[in-house]
Amino acid sequence: MVKDEMFLTYIRNMNESFSGWDFSYITNTGRVQNELMTWSYGSLLVPNLAKANTMLDMGTGGGELLSKLKPLPPKVFATEAYKPNVPIARNRLEPLGIQVYEIEEDNKLPFEKDFFDLVINRHEAYCRKEVKRVLRNKGVFITQQVGGTDCAQINDALGAPPYDEYAYWNLDYAVKELENHGFKIVLAKEEFPLQRFYDVGALVYYLKAVPWQVPNFEVETYISRLYEIHQHIQNKGYFDVRQHRFVIEARPM
């Protein structure tokens, strides 16, 4: 049993609740920092928002990002598949006139054909055929995705099984799939920015919020490895992993 009081304080500190898709508890306090990428998802959206009349935000989470985009098109809709996020998103977005739909399958969007000028998607699964169905002929699809090797060093450090179910998911694969479904690629970039954890409690908080990184993660199961990471941070000052991100802007042909 680990008796290091500093380590135990960090572990107890991770009990702060997580809701929606808001990591501000560890990011706004500087406990986790991310390396900058050569693109901004938000900046890519701005000129397209200005030209759109109808827009869909796929996988809105708790509506955190969508609620901050201004000015929005006249008609905006959002979908969310994770049930705990749905009431959070509705409470945040419906006062803004944005209707939130709870969905169960990516290939069954509750919208008519050729309905949207703009479909945006940040870190959410999507069905290429279904996105093309709901997009108008001159519409735009913009997505930022988490690649299949995201933060693999966490699993390595914990001695946990690699999360390799989506190891194939990268920019080349996604581009080819979109092209095969009748999209023209306007922009495509892929990068592996650094994510730096400054204390082990922030890492535990992250793993609780992102349960697919280490399925069935429990502190008790990985207590020894977590303590090793804590010691590494005490010696070096931080624990680094590599994120995997790619962004695509595509239009129906």
Rank of each mutant, 00 (worst) to 15 (best):
N53Y: 11
H181C: 14
R133W: 04
G237W: 01
M1H: 13
T38N: 15
G42K: 02
R122S: 12
I11C: 01
L171K: 05
K208T: 08
I11Q: 01
L45Q: 07
F23H: 08
P161E: 05
I185E: 01
L135A: 01
I233Y: 06
T29G: 13
E220I: 15
Y163T: 09
P71V: 06
N53A: 11
L36F: 02
G201W: 04
P87D: 14
T149F: 10
Y222C: 13
D150S: 12
A52F: 12
L69Y: 14
L118W: 08
L171G: 07
Y10A: 01
A81R: 10
S43I: 05
N107L: 02
L178C: 03
L45K: 04
P110I: 14
L207C: 02
N155G: 09
E228A: 14
W21H: 13
V76E: 11
Y227P: 02
R133Y: 04
Q243V: 06
F116N: 08
Y238I: 12
V204P: 00
V76Q: 00
R133G: 00
G42C: 11
D117L: 05
R92L: 13
F141S: 00
L158I: 08
R128D: 14
Y168A: 09
Y163K: 14
N216Y: 10
I26S: 09
K3V: 15
K189I: 00
P110V: 14
E249D: 08
V32G: 04
T79Y: 01
F18D: 03
N91Y: 09
I103L: 12
T27N: 13
P162S: 10
N121F: 06
T149C: 04
W21I: 02
E94W: 13
E80V: 14
L36V: 10
L56P: 03
I248F: 02
P71W: 01
G159W: 08
G182D: 11
T149Q: 14
R196H: 06
E124Q: 12
F217W: 02
K129P: 12
I142M: 07
G61P: 11
R133L: 10
L135H: 00
R128H: 11
A152F: 09
Y101W: 07
P74K: 15
L158A: 07
V146L: 07
N53G: 03
A89C: 08
G59I: 01
W21P: 01
Q99W: 10
Q153M: 06
V214H: 02
I248W: 01
T27V: 08
F7L: 09
I120L: 03
E177K: 15
H232I: 05
P162E: 09
N107E: 15
E165R: 13
F18P: 07
S224K: 15
P95R: 08
F141D: 15
Q145S: 15
L226Q: 01
G59M: 04
I248L: 14
R196K: 14
G30K: 03
G63M: 07
E191Y: 00
E228C: 09
L72Q: 02
Q33T: 14
R242Y: 12
R12E: 14
D199R: 04
I142N: 08
E80P: 07
L207R: 05
R31E: 07
T9E: 02
N235A: 15
N34S: 15
G97A: 15
V214K: 12
T54R: 07
D156T: 13
D57A: 11
I26W: 03
M14F: 05
A167C: 11
G148W: 10
W212E: 13
